[in-house]
Design a protein around this nucleic acid. Structure first.
Lengths: 241, 241
DNA sequence: CCAGCCAAGTGGTCGGACCACTACGGGTTC
DNA sequence: GAACCCGTAGTGGTCCGACCACTTGGCTGG
């Protein structure tokens, strides 16, 4: 009945799988340029429209990169490229799942901070201190948020696990934190946050992994507990969606 | 110069953002049906082709679901839907990043197992035992792998954090484990694996979180260490890609 | 030798046509 | 009256062909 090329699902889905397979099998190397949309379509026996949908899908997944006028390329396939979509999860989650995401972040962030305490170089530690100082030197929430993100990003990078750092990045996406922190900081949590950040930095400087783990876990845990209280709280319409 | 609707990036990218925004703002509820492709295209002022690319992109991200002949729907937006793409990362990663992924899994899995030890119900524990028994009763690698996955999935589910379970699921995708385990099991690691699984189960049955954490960490850590050795090993062409 | 231009080739967008499938309703049958 | 069948309108899926926007590299003219 069915021949060599059986039909399963839509042709676009099939094209996506085929390109993914080409990369997984090593027939397409990171950074390499793919054939033309038009040629790819011919090769797989589908129309250019369907091929474009497949390419677009792989583009949003961070697997391919399309450069207008130049061609289609395989990305570096690094953790950051592929885990970019993780931010979507954080952005579209609401209610109880926000707490779950924070719980995951607490687990990973505490471990990452502990690893960082053992491995961080003096250069990186200086960068951490820079963001810490900048964060305490301003009252602009936007700027604080930016340096806060950079502060944790630097620590995660120092842990030496790019994948973990990329996941934590997604779990701390701008819109995610902005949504949660809007309410959290309104309750005058600035002082507490500064204290916790200082504790994390102190543990890093002392190269004390266990202290770092505890400080980081407490830091994220504070937000987590606050959010948990918000959800089950008195207000019939909980704060963050 | 630019008016109300400024042009940034491709029209498709803009459409993706707009639909995402509609969901984030609550204008589109989970499970709800969207207007037809044709109408959506008209509303956003783009062609149907471009709109289809946007829809396809959101489909692979697990945000939308297209039912042929029926319409386009917002998914339940549960952790499993949105984190399905996590498997792609595991499938396309190779070399050092495989070790990083296992490290992340070790951290999350050990915590999840500890939580499970404290919270697991008798029903779930029975299910865990079922997969454990089935895993030890056969020699078919395929079947062993399937029950192994189910074993850990059941435990992750018992931890009470759907998001974490979904991430672990992605980190243990069939193709991922198949690639790594092919070599690992060849070295006669069956016995060791069974011993470790038994230890995990014992800790769960005893409701001992710390023992469970240790057992799970050791279990994943074994594979992690083996893989690490493979990569830096003697063979110029390391085993798993 | 260099700057600038120009043309070929690429991805991006559009419109329309047709196909495959689903869902709904009216009609038929028991 | 209820259950079944089937036609049909409407949906997503696919394809085609044309044109636009941009990059690139070679060519031309200074």
């Amino acid at each position: 009945m069915d021949e060599a090329a059986p039909q399963k699902g839509t042709v676009t889905q099939r094209a996506i799988e085929q390109i993914k397979a080409m990369i997984a099998e090593g027939r397409l190397e990171p950074g390499q340029r793919l054939p033309t949309e038009r040629e790819l379509a011919v090769r797989l026996g589908i129309s250019r429209s369907s091929m474009r949908e497949a390419i677009r899908a792989l583009t949003v997944l961070g697997v391919l990169e399309a450069r207008h006028g130049s061609g289609i390329y395989v990305t570096a396939l690094e953790a950051g490229d592929l885990l970019e979509t993780f931010g979507v999860v954080a952005d579209l989650s609401r209610g109880p799942r926000l707490v779950e995401l924070l719980e995951v972040r607490r687990i990973l962030e505490s471990t990452a901070t502990a690893l960082a305490a053992a491995r961080i170089t003096d250069d990186r530690l200086a960068a951490v201190e820079k963001h810490l100082a900048a964060m305490n030197a301003t009252d602009d929430p936007e700027e604080i948020l930016a340096h806060d993100l950079a502060f944790h990003r630097e620590i995660a990078a120092a842990a030496g696990n790019e994948t973990m750092a990329a996941i934590l990045d997604g779990l701390s996406s701008r819109t995610f934190r902005a949504r949660v922190w809007r309410g959290y900081q309104e309750e005058g949590a600035f002082a507490r946050t500064r204290r916790e950040h200082a504790a994390i930095h102190r543990a890093l400087a002392a190269r004390d992994p266990e202290a770092a783990r505890t400080a980081a876990a407490a830091h994220v845990g504070e937000v987590e507990e606050w959010l948990r209280a918000q959800l089950g709280g008195p207000d019939p319409r909980p704060g963050p969606r």
